[in-house]
Amino acid sequence: MSFLAYTTGIAFLIWIILPLFKKDSTWVSLYMEADELADKKKRVYGNIADLEFDFAMGRLSEKDFKHIRQAFLSEAGRVIEKLESQKSSAFMDRIENDISNLGKKRKTKKKNKNRSKVFCIECGTENLPEAKFCMKCGKEMS
């Protein structure tokens, strides 16, 4: 009985430790300022929904309702404007990151001489991993 327990235990240990020996990648933290803005956007939208509900339920006067709603709308406008400009700069960062990762991948793949297969999402044709467009239908490869 205890022999069985020991073997299972050791098998378990090996299974747990295995990922430590894998050649692995690191992850990149997501862009935090964009998170914050997305939070803000969600909040303003939630506030507007609540305000409209409160007004419908007769909890605030029409004057207050119009006044507060206007304030929320302009706040939403500001947040979205900021978000858009952040997004484009975040995209630039992401693209830079992707490009540098692409270089790495290409190197390791060449070393292994073991190319993974890539398929077009439009027509399903197999393409080269580094292809930018599908060789059959011309759809951009993601």
Binding site: I16, I17, L18, P19, L20, F21, K22, D24, S25, T26, W27, V28, S29
Partner: peptide, 9 residues
């Protein structure tokens, strides 16, 4: 370290 292997372990 932000290493995926460690997190998986």
């Amino acid at each position: 370290t932000k290493r995926r292997g460690l997190l998986e372990a």
